[in-house]
Design a protein around this nucleic acid. Structure first.
Lengths: 125, 125
DNA sequence: CTGCATCCAAAATGATACTG
DNA sequence: CAGTATCATTTTGGATGCAG
């Protein structure tokens, strides 16, 4: 075993070590690891945030992609959207309990990447 | 703090909570969380594997994308490629020490997703 | 068997203008 | 402020042929 005990969890889900194309995990993985999905989820681990704040923190995201990402994550049950009927409009996004669980796995991953990214990029001739 | 201590690691890297577009982490994240990068890395946590085996396990990947993914991960220093000068050709891919570290974070994530994917997908009306 | 190169189709993404 | 609509662009994917 090269990694750890958690491997068994993956093994249970994929006994023959194959990741089926039709597997529901593929869908979720695609959403979570999408270009902006990860950044949005990570931002939200800091607590509820407004649209404009998310747009600012996930630097480079277009309005279209942010809207799409948020709607996807909301449909997946990771993100909660709450709109306040005021003028000007105010909408707050936050993680659901499920989203918090997911974030608990994402944060260490991002932490590791942040620590090693410079070395990795530097190593690419 | 909504998630855990590891948050501080991310905070250190991104003090103002902004994920800069030009950040090296973006590049690494894009590779690691690419559609096939994740599956290839996950497969390799089982140990060294040949091209044909990876192609079979990451169900649905085309030759073009597998080749591209492997070259990217190799350039990043996550994957080691060893070609044996035999006929017919035999090429084995494995995780580098860096890749093992990364895999250690990816496996728990995938485990969690595998356990929740069905519920998530079912919940999408 | 393990790839790389090329062409073409399709999907994801982005810039911009506009609305409640 | 928080989006939507539209169009242009980029990226991705599949099919095919070929080489070591």
């Amino acid at each position: 075993m090269t990694v750890s005990d958690e491997v068994s969890a993956v093994r249970q889900a994929f006994p023959d070590g194959i990741f089926p194309a039709a597997c529901p995990s593929r869908v979720v993985i695609d959403h979570v690891t999408s270009k902006w999905g990860l950044l949005v989820l990570l931002s939200l681990t800091d607590g509820p945030q407004r649209w404009s704040e998310l747009r600012r923190r996930a630097e480079g995201v277009s309005e279209k992609m942010l809207a799409q990402t948020l709607r996807t994550l909301e449909a997946d049950g990771f993100v909660h959207r709450e709109a306040f009927p005021v003028i000007p409009p105010r909408v707050e996004y936050s993680l659901t309990p499920l989203g918090e669980e997911l974030g608990a796995h994402l944060v260490p991953l991002m932490g590791w990447v942040a620590r090693h990214a410079d070395a990795v990029v530097a190593g690419r001739a």
